[in-house]
Amino acid sequence: MITNYYLKMEPRTTKNKWTISNIKDGFERFFRDYSRYPTATEIDGCDYLPSSRQIQRRFGGLPRLRETLKLKGVHDFTKGEYSSNRAKKINKRSYELETQIYRYLLDRFGKPFVHREYLFNDDRRTRTDFFVFCSNGNFSVDVFYPSDKKNMTGCINSKLKTYSSNHTLQYPVIFLMMNDEIQESEIEAMIKKKTKPLKDYQKIMTMNQFKKFCEGRKNSDKSSNPTNVAQVI
Results as ranks from 00 to 15, higher is better:
Val114Cys: 03
Tyr5Glu: 11
Tyr5Thr: 14
His75Glu: 07
Lys199Met: 14
Phe30Glu: 01
Ile43Leu: 03
Asp44Gln: 07
Asp148Gly: 07
Tyr201Gln: 08
Cys134Pro: 00
Lys218Met: 13
Val143Lys: 00
Tyr104Asp: 02
Arg124Pro: 05
Leu105Arg: 02
Tyr37Asp: 00
Glu10Pro: 06
Ile43Asp: 02
Cys214Asp: 05
Asp47Ala: 13
Asp142Cys: 11
Gln209Asn: 12
Arg125Gly: 14
Thr39Glu: 14
Ser164Ile: 06
Val229Pro: 07
Thr206Ala: 11
Cys46Ile: 09
Ala230Ile: 15
Thr153His: 15
Thr39Ser: 15
Tyr48Arg: 03
Pro172Val: 08
Ser223Arg: 11
Ala189Phe: 13
Thr126Cys: 07
Tyr201Gly: 09
Phe113Ile: 05
Ser83Asp: 09
Val132Gln: 00
Arg66Leu: 02
Asn151Ile: 05
Arg103Gln: 13
Gln209Cys: 03
Phe27Gly: 00
Glu81Tyr: 11
Thr19Arg: 00
Arg93Glu: 12
Asp221His: 07
Leu69His: 01
Asn16Cys: 08
Lys203Tyr: 07
Ser51Arg: 06
Ile90Thr: 10
His75Thr: 07
Tyr102Cys: 10
Ile204Val: 15
Ile23Glu: 00
Gly60Val: 01
Thr99Ala: 07
Leu71Tyr: 02
Leu49Asp: 00
Leu160Thr: 10
Lys89Gln: 11
Tyr34Ala: 09
Lys161Ala: 11
Thr128Cys: 10
Met9Lys: 13
Arg29Asn: 08
Lys192Glu: 15
Ile43Gln: 02
Tyr201Asn: 14
Tyr95Glu: 12
Arg103Gly: 12
Ile191Cys: 06
Leu7Gln: 11
Met177Gly: 07
Asn121Thr: 03
Met152Ala: 09
Thr168Ser: 13
Ile191His: 02
Asp221Gly: 04
Tyr201His: 10
Thr13Asp: 07
His115Asp: 11
Ser158Asp: 14
Trp18Asp: 04
Met177Ile: 04
Gly137Leu: 02
Gly110Trp: 01
Tyr171Ala: 12
Val143Ser: 04
Gly216Ser: 08
Thr162Val: 12
Met177Thr: 03
Asp221Tyr: 05
Gly154Met: 09
Arg103Asp: 10
Lys111Pro: 04
Lys149Asp: 06
Asp76Gln: 06
Asp180Lys: 10
Val74Leu: 04
Pro172Met: 08
Phe213Glu: 02
Arg64Lys: 15
Val232Asn: 10
Gln209Glu: 15
Arg66Val: 01
Gly61Phe: 03
Phe175Ile: 08
Ser84Gln: 13
Thr162Ser: 14
Cys46Leu: 10
Ser35Gly: 11
Glu96Tyr: 09
Glu181Lys: 15
Ile90Met: 08
